[in-house]
Simulated assay, not measured.
Amino acid sequence: MMYFLVSQSLLDAPSSRRDLLDDEVERRTAGIDETVRSAIEAYRAETLHGLLTWSIVALGAALVLAGVLGWFLAGRALRPLQQVTETARRVAERNLHERIGLTGPKDELRELADTFDAMLERLDRSFDAQRTFVANASHELRTPLAVNRTLLEVALGEPDISDDLRRLAPTLLATNERSERLVEGLLTLARSEQSVTEPVAVDLREITSAVLDQEKGEATRHGMAVTSQLRHALTTGNGVLLERMVVNLVQNAIRHGGPDGTARVWTGPRDGWVAIQVENTGPKLGTYEVEGLFEPFRRGEGRSARGQGVGLGLSIVRSIARAHGGRVVARPRDQGGLLIRVDLPARVQG
């Protein structure tokens, strides 16, 4: 439009007025008239060309400036929404203690963030109450179970014990021991579902080596051959919980490895993480069964016949891994058995 207006406003070359002049004047002015006309045409063409060039440059600069300004304004407008999304992702991966705490004007995004914070607060209180109840109930059950075990052991030592009690006592002791393991597992599970507040430097290699020495007798009783390849795997966390995680992994492999089975334990760095991997023989499992093994009180087909556990071992493993910002990967082996790998964040050296 600007180009059209300017082109119309510029004077065209002067029209011929030879009809008003005599032949002599026409001959004298013909050369001058042609020169003026050419100069005016050249000036008009140069002006329009310059206008077109600068118009294109200005249009390009305006588009670039509009794009940058739009990106900046969109970023400022969507920043609160991005904050909400990042907080929701961290909460889903770690714990419910974080809050968005969005500041600024009381607009729709601020109202959304406040509603999300209120929901997190209610969920946090609910889960804390659930964990507290499980921990308190389990703790209260430990004393009577310990008393029952002591009374049974004392009764078995009496010389005049009745034959009925002598026959029932081993069954009662086994049942009591199973209940104690269940209570201990519930306590560990409730404790492991909380975030690690004071992490310390931990080497999975040292923990795993100690656990394998501790479980040698258990492996011998089950006829399991356990091999290991242990490399340094430095992470940070709660050493007691991480030891319990390794114990559960190793015991799970030993107890479900099958007659004359084998288990292989590996620790070391892996793709920016540190990991412990436990692989054992055993009955064949379907891929659809693996996830159920990590649910409380659930075991796969063919794994419950041995009656060794209470169905909390792998649930505790996953809870401890999550509390440390890690992940658990499990898959059935083609030859039978299971492979479980726990990845934990590597310790930052410094």
Rank of each mutant, 00 (worst) to 15 (best):
T235D: 05
N252G: 10
D203V: 02
K284I: 05
V211D: 10
L285I: 06
G258C: 09
V226W: 10
T220C: 03
N280F: 11
G261V: 01
L212F: 08
T227M: 08
L234Y: 00
N252A: 07
A233Q: 00
R264C: 01
A210E: 15
V265Q: 14
G258K: 03
R255F: 08
A253Q: 01
G217H: 09
T287A: 15
T220I: 10
K216A: 13
A253M: 04
L285V: 06
T267N: 08
I276S: 04
V246T: 12
T236K: 03
M245Q: 13
A253K: 03
L241V: 11
T208I: 09
T236P: 00
D260Y: 04
A225G: 03
V246I: 15
P199I: 13
V274G: 04
G257S: 14
T236Y: 03
P199H: 08
Q277L: 08
K284C: 01
G268I: 03
R231K: 14
R244V: 10
E206I: 01
G217S: 14
V246G: 08
E215P: 02
D260S: 12
E243T: 15
T235F: 03
T227E: 14
R205D: 08
G237Y: 04
G286L: 11
Y288I: 09
R221C: 01
G258A: 10
P269C: 02
Q214P: 07
W266I: 13
P259H: 06
N238I: 07
H232Y: 02
D271E: 10
A201V: 11
Q214S: 14
L242K: 06
R205G: 11
E289Y: 07
Q229Y: 03
V274Q: 09
R255Q: 13
G217T: 12
D271M: 01
G282S: 11
A233F: 02
L204A: 09
L230R: 11
N252S: 13
T227L: 05
V226M: 12
P269K: 08
A210C: 02
R244L: 04
V240C: 00
G223Q: 02
A210D: 15
A210V: 06
G239A: 15
A263N: 01
T236N: 04
T262N: 11
R205L: 08
G268P: 05
G286K: 06
V246W: 07
P283V: 14
G286Y: 03
H222A: 14
G272H: 01
N238V: 07
L230K: 10
V265D: 09
V247K: 07
V226R: 09
Q277E: 14
Q229E: 09
G261A: 08
I254R: 02
S209K: 10
G272Y: 05
V211N: 05
D260G: 12
P283K: 03
T262Q: 11
I254G: 03
T287M: 07
Y288W: 05
M224L: 12
A233R: 09
V200I: 13
M224E: 08
G272T: 04
R255D: 13
E218F: 11
R255Y: 11
G286T: 05
P259C: 01
L234Q: 13
T220H: 13
L230S: 14
G268N: 07
R244S: 15
G282P: 05
E243P: 00
